[in-house]
Design a protein around this nucleic acid. Structure first.
Ligand SMILES: [Mn+2]
Ligand SMILES: [Mn+2]
Ligand SMILES: [Zn+2]
Ligand SMILES: [Zn+2]
Lengths: 138, 138
DNA sequence: TATCTAAATGAAATTTAGTTTCATTTAAAA
DNA sequence: TTTTAAATGAAACTAAATTTCATTTAGATA
């Protein structure tokens, strides 16, 4: 929790109970989560309003505490940036999300695609398929 | 237009005026377009309802006539599958979408990620950055 | 060709994810 | 402690997408 306090102090914004709870949640869940998932997670103790969750995640994105990720369902999810740039395996059957350690195409960022004379600054790659459990013995 | 007729006959569904217009539109635009973009494009001649556009694009997706693509804005877009699997350069300044001819990671599909024992069946990759025009001389 | 009917359409209502408004509360500066 | 700009959250709103259901139609059948 000290860590959370320090991070919030560093972004030059008020260190509120809600922001601490949301940031703590992102650390705990350590995978891409939607605003509603964060809200539900916290609503057991019911300390944070839905609007505040949305606004706080946007703030955290601007301050680079989280990155925004969109899977094929189109829902906006956020993941803590304390995990470095990576991609995911997403099971089409059970929805499990498995982080991939290595990014084989990280060298793309900052490079220029010659044919199109296009400067690449970021990329999104997600892999879909079937996890061990869902494939049974196969 | 004969081509459009033939394709629709092949999917075993009624060959309606609306379906022909929507499929024709996807061929003409030849880039990822949202349901509303298709609707707007056709609303000059006002022959197709908004609901029908949404439903028809879903039908086309099930029949593999189009693929669903999501950029970072979260809006669902569709692109005709007569263009083979590829990715895009998307300009963060002007929004231009440039198709990339080659997919360097096509070999991923059908392969198993060993560490996770995960069978990859499809992947989504989109590159963001700045096009020639938007970078000026740079 | 005329008749029939399941499939398709589209206006309107509804849902869902996300955003805006604004009165109230609060962190933290003075 | 007092002050105040920043933050919160309930409620209203928006935009994209989906559902409902009365009407229309493609195309099979007679
Ligand atoms: Mn991750
Ligand atoms: Mn394309
Ligand atoms: Zn990467
Ligand atoms: Zn699975």
């Amino acid at each position: 929790m000290d860590r959370v306090n320090e991070i919030l102090r560093n972004i030059g914004k008020k260190c509120t109970e809600q922001r601490k709870l949301i940031l703590q949640t992102l650390f705990e869940l350590a995978k891409p989560v939607s605003a509603d998932e964060v809200y539900e997670y916290l609503s057991e103790t019911n300390k944070v309003g839905r609007t505040t969750v949305y606004r706080t995640l946007e703030l955290f994105e601007r301050k680079k505490l989280v990155r925004r990720i969109i899977f094929k369902d189109g829902i906006i999810r956020y993941e803590s940036t304390h995990l470095k740039h990576h991609h995911h395996l997403i099971c089409l059957s059970c929805g499990e999300v498995i982080p991939l350690e290595h990014c084989a195409i990280a060298s793309l960022d900052g490079s220029v695609i010659e044919d199109a004379d296009f400067l690449v600054t970021e990329h999104f790659l997600e892999l879909y398929g079937y996890c061990k459990k869902c494939r049974g013995g196969k």
